[in-house]
Design a protein around this nucleic acid. Sequence first.
DNA 1: GCACCTGTCGTACTAAGTACGAGACTGTAT
DNA 2: ATACAGTCTCGTACTTAGTACGACAGGTGC
Lengths: 235, 235
Amino acid sequence: MVRSAGNGAAERVPLSRDRVLRAAVAVADAGGIAALTIRSLATELGVKPMSVYHYVANKDEILDGIVDLVFGEFELPAAGGDWRQEMRRRAASARRVLRSHPWATPLLQSRLNAGPATLRHHNAMLGALRAAGFSVEQTAHAFALIDSYLYGFAMSETALPIHGPESVADLAGSMMQRFSAEEYPHLVEFTMEHIMQPGYDFGAEFDFGLDLILDGLARSLPADGAAAPGVRPVE
Amino acid sequence: MVRSAGNGAAERVPLSRDRVLRAAVAVADAGGIAALTIRSLATELGVKPMSVYHYVANKDEILDGIVDLVFGEFELPAAGGDWRQEMRRRAASARRVLRSHPWATPLLQSRLNAGPATLRHHNAMLGALRAAGFSVEQTAHAFALIDSYLYGFAMSETALPIHGPESVADLAGSMMQRFSAEEYPHLVEFTMEHIMQPGYDFGAEFDFGLDLILDGLARSLPADGAAAPGVRPVE
DNA sequence: GCACCTGTCGTACTAAGTACGAGACTGTAT
DNA sequence: ATACAGTCTCGTACTTAGTACGACAGGTGC
């Protein structure tokens, strides 16, 4: 077995943990997470399956690794400055990243072993909220609320079969044939009057919810033109 | 072995699609979704693997089926009555169900073929919101917001390794050793001053977020003691 | 030249999904 | 009863995937 294949330095890039993980992301991007197998990964890398195991212990470690790569793509919120704007910027970037890696959202929350990029991200979120004036406890509330919404929305969004307005309408139309108007009247109404309307875009719902959440959180901040924590202006 | 129709012999329950799906839920509950294989399912049912295929076309159909079973466990919100209370009741029930089937949350959103219980549930949600006075468009906002939050939160919650206060604190403690206070100062602060405090319970965050969201949505309702849509009482 | 380390790979075992078709069982018509 | 036909169950076996084990090649220091 001769592996000469050239004396030029250009082509033979040695394997590395980083190359393995990046190739894994590429395979998952191309064919979904189910298409990511040790064998498909090896093919992508131009090596044989067992070579991969020199850089990762097992497939789970690959999954943990690509989750951290994805977190690494999120823009970090800055501490200081307009905290709402920082939250919006980071959320928009996260949503963009998760849309470009549709397989990632379920993985993000199901993996436990946080990598360095993940820790950096969480740390930046906490720092930005604390700098905005939230107490530790309020920060816990805010973090849980914002990220639950973000990941939950990203899940719904990436679970949609194809993206783009018209494909959703098509899907809705074909689903409509399966359920009758008598059994599910509100579903029918909703589909006809909303989803199948021209220009419908589920992704557009995101900003409404995020702004509502940020407004609500702002109300619990003492010095933001709103009432004191725990007291709402009108009841 | 005799299966006479009509009298006696209650022992040999014949297989059925329903029994197959319920057994699948039981296997997943006991060992996680990864433990659900055609073979483990057959063992649970006391039959051989290939017998299962008489009732389902393939494993994907089993996954779709158990998702619909889970949706069937959600309490449906009633149309009319106090809509916020209905939303709270249904959300609490959903959270309870998802905690009792920790494997379910990622599945719920990743499966496309909605079953009858799923459609009934969505229909009830839409109906309750419409009856509360939300327009079709506002209903879309509300539904997307509430459910993104609900599923996102459920994901975080069930991704936690073990439930109960002290186990989380233990985990946090062991994770603390992996990252230094210089690199992740806010993560350290947060862990020390919040997560590791006695009585910490992540699940308790849920109500804060849900109430904030429902309050925000109530503000967009004309006749609810709040201002007109788009105008907040205090700024 | 030699022992040695490192990275790559050949072989092979195990687990899992499932196609194919045989065989067993049950109710029904003769 | 007997034979048939439909329904259900299962034995066998093929395919894909994860990965343990150890061989082998090329480079490195002595």
